[in-house]
Design a binder for these strands. Sequence first.
DNA 1: TTAACGATTGAGCACTTGTTCACATGTTGA
DNA 2: TCAACATGTGAACAAGTGCTCAATCGTTAA
Lengths: 117, 117
Amino acid sequence: MTPSETCEVFCVNAPKVKAVTQELSAQKNIIDLAETFKLLGDPTRLKIILALRMGELCVCDLATTLGLSRSAISHQLRLLRNLRLVKFRREGKISFYSLDDSHIAAIIDSAMEHIGE
Amino acid sequence: MTPSETCEVFCVNAPKVKAVTQELSAQKNIIDLAETFKLLGDPTRLKIILALRMGELCVCDLATTLGLSRSAISHQLRLLRNLRLVKFRREGKISFYSLDDSHIAAIIDSAMEHIGE
DNA sequence: TTAACGATTGAGCACTTGTTCACATGTTGA
DNA sequence: TCAACATGTGAACAAGTGCTCAATCGTTAA
């Protein structure tokens, strides 16, 4: 009898595990949720979000503000676009980016409260 | 004159960049914030959080629920503990974990609204 | 049409990360 | 004290990630 078998027999609170397992499998969008948090979990992307909270900015201004190359910013913006965290409009040669969704500010506010400030 | 120099001269909205840069540097806790989101950005850890939202669970029950080894769960719980996303109490040989902070549920709720469900 | 230029993209890489494995720790009951 | 067992931890490795570099795209103005 392996340790894990032992554990299943003697340690597990079976009804609770069953309930939680069912609840988790009912959550169809856990992966999407994790994907969203992962995007916010990188300092560069989080700074982009925080910067755009103050108003729309072009790629070049974001690069200057964050001290990174425009290529690096553009790569990250694509990821943020794909998950609809940011949107953009084009004006001639320049792309202006802004937040796509008011929920994003709410997410960040909640997290800041957790951090405690 | 390199392209980036050109960009700084002709593309940047200088006052806005300056304002945003100052605002970002005033945010002392961006790294902590990103660290918190990064923890929520892994499916395993997010499932742990969602499971604990239904009540405290021991390591073994979490491992059974998520279909992972107890070692893997334990490693992740340590990370969650370090950032005070979860807390635990010990009862004999068994550690019971639970959410450490009501803000976490709020963060997740906001994010779920963003996903759209 | 052409040059200029902001933005985008793919390849490549150094670095990070989540898991497994083996072992250590700490508590319980005999 | 000793065996059993839930949990914790360090090393190692495969997979994933963020940046740079070079090339390309798309728009503007001459």
